[in-house]
Design a protein around this nucleic acid. Structure first.
Length: 287
DNA sequence: GATGCGTGGAA
DNA sequence: TTTCCAAGCAT
Protein backbone atom coordinates (compact mmCIF):
# COMPACT_ATOMS: atom_id res chain seq x y z
CA UNK A 1 0.00 0.00 0.00
CA UNK A 2 2.09 2.92 1.23
CA UNK A 3 5.14 1.38 -0.38
CA UNK A 4 3.46 1.76 -3.76
CA UNK A 5 4.00 5.51 -3.46
CA UNK A 6 7.71 5.10 -3.99
CA UNK A 7 8.01 4.42 -7.71
CA UNK A 8 5.77 7.25 -8.96
CA UNK A 9 7.47 9.72 -6.62
CA UNK A 10 10.95 8.60 -7.68
CA UNK A 11 10.02 8.87 -11.34
CA UNK A 12 8.44 12.27 -10.81
CA UNK A 13 11.60 13.45 -9.09
CA UNK A 14 13.82 12.44 -11.98
CA UNK A 15 11.64 14.47 -14.33
CA UNK A 16 11.09 17.57 -12.19
CA UNK A 17 13.96 17.94 -9.73
CA UNK A 18 15.57 21.34 -9.32
CA UNK A 19 19.24 21.80 -10.07
CA UNK A 20 20.49 23.04 -6.70
CA UNK A 21 24.23 23.54 -6.15
CA UNK A 22 24.37 21.45 -2.97
CA UNK A 23 22.84 18.54 -4.90
CA UNK A 24 25.48 18.46 -7.61
CA UNK A 25 28.01 15.64 -7.72
CA UNK A 26 30.84 18.01 -6.82
CA UNK A 27 29.13 19.22 -3.65
CA UNK A 28 31.24 18.50 -0.57
CA UNK A 29 29.95 17.23 2.79
CA UNK A 30 30.77 20.66 4.20
CA UNK A 31 28.75 22.34 1.47
CA UNK A 32 25.85 20.02 2.19
CA UNK A 33 26.05 20.68 5.93
CA UNK A 34 26.11 24.44 5.28
CA UNK A 35 23.07 24.13 3.01
CA UNK A 36 21.09 22.13 5.56
CA UNK A 37 21.77 24.61 8.37
CA UNK A 38 20.84 27.52 6.11
CA UNK A 39 17.67 25.79 4.94
CA UNK A 40 16.32 25.38 8.47
CA UNK A 41 13.09 27.41 8.33
CA UNK A 42 14.40 29.36 5.36
CA UNK A 43 13.23 29.21 1.70
CA UNK A 44 15.56 27.83 -0.97
CA UNK A 45 15.43 31.04 -3.03
CA UNK A 46 16.94 33.01 -0.18
CA UNK A 47 19.53 30.38 0.68
CA UNK A 48 20.92 30.12 -2.85
CA UNK A 49 22.93 33.36 -2.97
CA UNK A 50 23.89 33.12 0.70
CA UNK A 51 25.23 29.59 0.23
CA UNK A 52 27.25 30.54 -2.85
CA UNK A 53 28.92 33.46 -1.11
CA UNK A 54 29.54 31.50 2.08
CA UNK A 55 31.18 28.61 0.24
CA UNK A 56 33.33 30.96 -1.82
CA UNK A 57 34.61 32.58 1.35
CA UNK A 58 34.92 29.45 3.49
CA UNK A 59 35.21 26.37 1.26
CA UNK A 60 36.28 24.16 4.18
CA UNK A 61 35.50 23.88 7.90
CA UNK A 62 39.09 24.81 8.64
CA UNK A 63 38.76 28.09 6.78
CA UNK A 64 35.75 29.11 8.83
CA UNK A 65 37.24 27.89 12.10
CA UNK A 66 40.06 30.41 11.75
CA UNK A 67 37.64 33.31 11.78
CA UNK A 68 36.06 35.02 14.77
CA UNK A 69 32.41 33.98 15.24
CA UNK A 70 31.30 37.53 14.56
CA UNK A 71 32.46 37.20 10.97
CA UNK A 72 30.10 34.26 10.53
CA UNK A 73 27.26 36.36 11.94
CA UNK A 74 28.15 39.23 9.62
CA UNK A 75 28.32 36.98 6.56
CA UNK A 76 24.99 35.44 7.56
CA UNK A 77 23.40 38.75 6.69
CA UNK A 78 19.61 38.79 6.81
CA UNK A 79 18.97 35.06 6.46
CA UNK A 80 17.31 35.01 9.87
CA UNK A 81 17.85 33.01 13.06
CA UNK A 82 21.45 34.23 13.32
CA UNK A 83 22.33 31.75 16.04
CA UNK A 84 22.61 29.34 13.12
CA UNK A 85 25.68 31.30 12.03
CA UNK A 86 27.21 30.75 15.45
CA UNK A 87 26.25 27.08 15.26
CA UNK A 88 27.95 26.72 11.90
CA UNK A 89 31.07 28.40 13.21
CA UNK A 90 31.03 26.10 16.24
CA UNK A 91 30.56 23.12 13.91
CA UNK A 92 33.63 24.23 11.98
CA UNK A 93 35.67 24.42 15.18
CA UNK A 94 34.58 20.97 16.35
CA UNK A 95 35.09 19.40 12.93
CA UNK A 96 38.57 20.90 12.72
CA UNK A 97 39.59 20.00 16.26
CA UNK A 98 37.96 16.61 16.67
CA UNK A 99 37.35 15.18 13.22
CA UNK A 100 40.53 16.07 11.38
CA UNK A 101 38.79 18.78 9.38
CA UNK A 102 36.34 16.39 7.76
CA UNK A 103 32.60 16.46 8.32
CA UNK A 104 31.75 13.25 10.23
CA UNK A 105 29.75 10.68 8.33
CA UNK A 106 27.58 8.97 10.93
CA UNK A 107 24.22 10.09 12.22
CA UNK A 108 25.40 9.96 15.84
CA UNK A 109 28.48 12.10 15.23
CA UNK A 110 26.52 14.60 13.17
CA UNK A 111 23.73 14.76 15.73
CA UNK A 112 26.29 15.77 18.36
CA UNK A 113 27.29 18.90 16.41
CA UNK A 114 25.84 22.23 17.59
CA UNK A 115 22.60 23.15 15.84
CA UNK A 116 22.29 19.71 14.24
CA UNK A 117 19.06 17.97 15.23
CA UNK A 118 17.32 14.84 14.04
CA UNK A 119 16.46 16.20 10.64
CA UNK A 120 19.83 17.76 9.79
CA UNK A 121 21.82 14.75 11.01
CA UNK A 122 19.71 12.40 8.90
CA UNK A 123 19.87 14.71 5.89
CA UNK A 124 23.66 15.10 5.93
CA UNK A 125 24.25 11.41 6.66
CA UNK A 126 22.03 10.61 3.68
CA UNK A 127 22.88 13.27 1.12
CA UNK A 128 26.60 13.58 1.83
CA UNK A 129 27.44 10.00 2.74
CA UNK A 130 24.71 7.81 1.27
CA UNK A 131 23.40 6.66 4.63
CA UNK A 132 20.04 4.97 5.03
CA UNK A 133 17.88 7.15 7.28
CA UNK A 134 14.34 8.43 7.51
CA UNK A 135 14.65 12.11 6.63
CA UNK A 136 11.60 13.70 8.19
CA UNK A 137 11.20 17.36 7.42
CA UNK A 138 8.11 19.52 7.11
CA UNK A 139 7.69 18.61 3.43
CA UNK A 140 7.79 14.88 4.05
CA UNK A 141 5.49 15.19 7.03
CA UNK A 142 2.94 17.06 4.92
CA UNK A 143 3.09 14.59 2.03
CA UNK A 144 2.57 11.65 4.38
CA UNK A 145 -0.15 13.41 6.35
CA UNK A 146 -2.10 13.93 3.17
CA UNK A 147 -1.33 10.78 1.23
CA UNK A 148 -1.67 8.33 4.12
CA UNK A 149 -3.64 9.95 6.91
CA UNK A 150 -5.90 12.00 4.69
CA UNK A 151 -5.34 15.23 6.60
CA UNK A 152 -4.37 18.62 5.26
CA UNK A 153 -1.58 19.26 7.76
CA UNK A 154 0.70 17.12 9.92
CA UNK A 155 0.54 17.43 13.72
CA UNK A 156 2.31 20.39 15.31
CA UNK A 157 5.06 18.23 16.74
CA UNK A 158 6.46 15.12 15.14
CA UNK A 159 4.80 12.00 16.54
CA UNK A 160 6.13 8.49 16.99
CA UNK A 161 3.56 7.33 14.44
CA UNK A 162 4.93 9.70 11.82
CA UNK A 163 8.44 8.48 12.47
CA UNK A 164 7.42 4.83 12.25
CA UNK A 165 5.65 5.47 8.98
CA UNK A 166 8.60 7.36 7.51
CA UNK A 167 11.00 4.62 8.57
CA UNK A 168 8.79 1.93 7.08
CA UNK A 169 9.03 3.65 3.70
CA UNK A 170 12.82 3.95 3.52
CA UNK A 171 13.94 1.64 0.71
CA UNK A 172 16.81 -0.77 1.12
CA UNK A 173 18.69 0.76 -1.79
CA UNK A 174 19.03 4.38 -2.83
CA UNK A 175 17.49 5.66 0.38
CA UNK A 176 18.94 9.18 -0.13
CA UNK A 177 17.23 9.49 -3.49
CA UNK A 178 13.92 8.53 -1.95
CA UNK A 179 14.41 11.09 0.81
CA UNK A 180 15.16 13.96 -1.52
CA UNK A 181 12.36 12.92 -3.87
CA UNK A 182 9.65 13.12 -1.20
CA UNK A 183 11.02 16.41 0.06
CA UNK A 184 11.00 17.80 -3.45
CA UNK A 185 7.42 16.69 -4.01
CA UNK A 186 6.37 18.50 -0.85
CA UNK A 187 8.31 21.59 -1.85
CA UNK A 188 7.05 21.86 -5.43
CA UNK A 189 3.65 20.12 -5.62
CA UNK A 190 2.25 19.13 -2.25
CA UNK A 191 2.70 22.61 -0.87
CA UNK A 192 1.19 23.95 2.33
CA UNK A 193 -1.02 26.41 0.49
CA UNK A 194 -2.58 25.80 -2.92
CA UNK A 195 -1.20 22.31 -3.56
CA UNK A 196 -0.97 21.38 -7.24
CA UNK A 197 -2.74 18.03 -7.07
CA UNK A 198 -3.21 18.00 -10.84
CA UNK A 199 0.57 17.67 -11.15
CA UNK A 200 0.98 15.10 -8.38
CA UNK A 201 2.22 11.63 -9.30
CA UNK A 202 0.31 10.01 -6.43
CA UNK A 203 -2.94 11.98 -6.71
CA UNK A 204 -4.76 8.77 -7.54
CA UNK A 205 -3.86 7.19 -4.22
CA UNK A 206 -3.78 10.28 -1.97
CA UNK A 207 -6.18 9.81 0.95
CA UNK A 208 -6.63 13.55 1.41
CA UNK A 209 -7.49 14.21 -2.22
CA UNK A 210 -9.76 11.17 -2.44
CA UNK A 211 -11.61 12.54 0.59
CA UNK A 212 -12.22 15.81 -1.23
CA UNK A 213 -9.32 17.75 0.32
CA UNK A 214 -11.06 18.54 3.62
CA UNK A 215 -9.71 21.67 5.30
CA UNK A 216 -7.86 21.11 8.52
CA UNK A 217 -8.17 23.28 11.61
CA UNK A 218 -6.90 26.84 11.34
CA UNK A 219 -3.35 27.09 12.50
CA UNK A 220 -2.31 30.15 14.39
CA UNK A 221 1.20 31.40 13.65
CA UNK A 222 3.38 33.35 16.01
CA UNK A 223 3.16 37.12 15.90
CA UNK A 224 6.33 39.02 15.06
CA UNK A 225 5.72 42.76 15.05
CA UNK A 226 6.63 44.26 18.39
CA UNK A 227 8.20 41.11 19.81
CA UNK A 228 11.60 40.63 21.37
CA UNK A 229 12.55 38.76 18.23
CA UNK A 230 11.98 41.79 16.08
CA UNK A 231 13.85 43.92 18.57
CA UNK A 232 16.80 41.52 18.58
CA UNK A 233 16.81 41.61 14.80
CA UNK A 234 17.01 45.40 14.78
CA UNK A 235 19.82 45.48 17.32
CA UNK A 236 21.85 42.81 15.59
CA UNK A 237 21.45 44.53 12.24
CA UNK A 238 23.16 47.61 13.71
CA UNK A 239 26.12 45.52 14.90
CA UNK A 240 26.30 43.59 11.62
CA UNK A 241 26.38 46.65 9.44
CA UNK A 242 28.94 48.53 11.52
CA UNK A 243 32.66 48.15 10.83
CA UNK A 244 33.64 48.19 14.48
CA UNK A 245 32.17 48.62 17.95
CA UNK A 246 29.13 50.89 18.23
CA UNK A 247 28.07 53.11 21.13
CA UNK A 248 24.98 52.11 23.03
CA UNK A 249 23.21 55.17 21.68
CA UNK A 250 23.28 53.60 18.23
CA UNK A 251 21.33 50.65 19.60
CA UNK A 252 18.96 52.83 21.59
CA UNK A 253 18.04 54.61 18.37
CA UNK A 254 16.48 51.59 16.67
CA UNK A 255 13.91 50.52 19.30
CA UNK A 256 11.77 52.86 21.39
CA UNK A 257 10.79 50.63 24.34
CA UNK A 258 13.75 50.80 26.70
CA UNK A 259 12.83 47.87 28.91
CA UNK A 260 12.29 45.59 25.95
CA UNK A 261 15.45 46.86 24.30
CA UNK A 262 17.55 46.10 27.37
CA UNK A 263 16.02 42.66 27.67
CA UNK A 264 16.69 41.88 24.02
CA UNK A 265 20.25 43.15 24.23
CA UNK A 266 20.90 41.02 27.30
CA UNK A 267 19.60 37.99 25.47
CA UNK A 268 21.90 38.68 22.52
CA UNK A 269 24.83 38.83 24.93
CA UNK A 270 23.66 35.62 26.60
CA UNK A 271 23.44 33.91 23.23
CA UNK A 272 26.94 35.00 22.28
CA UNK A 273 25.65 36.98 19.31
CA UNK A 274 27.03 40.23 20.72
CA UNK A 275 29.58 41.37 23.26
CA UNK A 276 30.18 44.49 25.28
CA UNK A 277 33.63 46.05 25.64
CA UNK A 278 35.03 47.68 28.79
CA UNK A 279 34.27 51.13 27.37
CA UNK A 280 30.59 50.24 27.05
CA UNK A 281 30.51 49.81 23.28
CA UNK A 282 29.00 46.77 21.55
CA UNK A 283 30.09 44.57 18.67
CA UNK A 284 29.73 41.13 17.11
CA UNK A 285 31.64 38.43 19.02
CA UNK A 286 35.39 38.46 18.39
CA UNK A 287 36.44 35.33 20.07
C1' DG B 1 5.53 19.34 24.84
C1' DA B 2 5.14 24.25 24.34
C1' DT B 3 7.94 28.39 23.36
C1' DG B 4 11.23 31.42 21.55
C1' DC B 5 14.08 32.25 17.93
C1' DG B 6 14.48 36.31 12.03
C1' DT B 7 13.22 37.53 7.78
C1' DG B 8 10.81 38.37 3.59
C1' DG B 9 7.57 36.96 -0.05
C1' DA B 10 2.98 35.58 -1.49
C1' DA B 11 -1.99 35.41 -1.06
C1' DT C 1 -3.09 45.10 5.85
C1' DT C 2 -2.63 40.83 7.92
C1' DT C 3 -1.63 36.17 7.88
C1' DC C 4 0.91 32.26 6.75
C1' DC C 5 4.83 29.85 5.97
C1' DA C 6 9.80 28.50 4.60
C1' DA C 7 14.84 21.42 4.23
C1' DG C 8 14.33 23.04 12.69
C1' DC C 9 16.74 23.38 17.05
C1' DA C 10 17.31 23.96 21.99
C1' DT C 11 15.35 24.44 26.32
Amino acid sequence: MAVSLRRPILDWYEAHRRDLPWRRPDATPWGILVSEIMLQQTPVVRVLPAWTEWMARWPTPEALAKEPPGEAVRQWGRLGYPRRALNLHACAKVITAEHGGRVPSTYAELRALPGVGDYTAAAVASFAFGGRHAVLDTNVRRVLARAIRGEEHPPRATTAAERRLAESLVPEVEAPRWAVAVMELGALVCTARAPRCEACPIAGQCAWRLAGRPAGPVRRGQRYAGTDRQCRGRLLAVLREADGPVPKSALDAVWPDQAQRERALDSLLDDGLAEVLPDGTYRLPAG
